[in-house]
Amino acid sequence: MSAERPTAAEPAIEVSDVCFAYGGQEVLHNVSFRIARNALVAVVGPNGGGKTTLLKLLLGELEPRYGTIRVLGGAPAATRVRIGYVPQTVPFDPRFPVSVREAVLMGRVAKSRFGHYGPPDHTAARDALARVGLADFERRSFAELSGGERQRVLIAQALAGGSELLLLDEPVANVDPEHTSRLYELFKALTSDVTVMMVSHNLSVVTGHATHVLCVNRMAGLHAIGEVASSTFTEAFGGSLTTIRHDADCHVMDPSAALDAPHHGCGGGADSRATDRTD
């Protein structure tokens, strides 16, 4: 297993010429990119563009039709336990009887023996909760938490399990603006020793925090944040965009410019969109 640990020079994620289709419907076409360790990558693109499919490929939940994927130095299925996945929403019964500590300990569930967590498990859970700023929440019920706090607990769960790569599917979709900002700050802080890849639709906030932007719309293009311009998003979404905040290089887009724009490795026009059934 240690042989598969990525070296400093080895990328956290390496995707080469990957194609994926649901039946005859191609969702991802010739996708290639490399993500260095400790990056904070925002995955953007229109609904149905293949973002969630890409995450599932990186998790080894789906197999590419063509091409290769290496995550943390190995095949996704083999390195999956070192990847922390946080879904957009967790279908959750508000009366489900679980404490915050128990929820975080679940990150180490496969490591527990004979149904019990040992002292190292509890230490890891406490450390993970401290990292996400919820050190005092250990004994609280998971059901009592806000949406943003629950997301933090799920991230702590992934960290407690020793994840080296976090895949976050729209982590701020159900979170209020104040908690959204805190979560992005958290993601940034986590990159000191973890690679973070998150799907997001909040383009202006993304550009304020991410180190890279991965545009996905059937094809994909990875851009360092310094290279991102308004046209990058227009081409990724294949249509008009309106951004509310202007703290990054994003402006109100001209729809006609988007339709005329050339491909930028991000997919392109509306005619190239495919249906992503998992989105």
Partner: peptide, 19 residues
């Protein structure tokens, strides 16, 4: 017990964590 609890909480997450 721990595995039953994790699966009841979220089957997908439990599976991805190696259960």
């Amino acid at each position: 017990y721990n595995r039953f609890l994790a699966i009841a909480f979220n089957e997908e997450l439990a599976r991805l964590r190696g259960v």
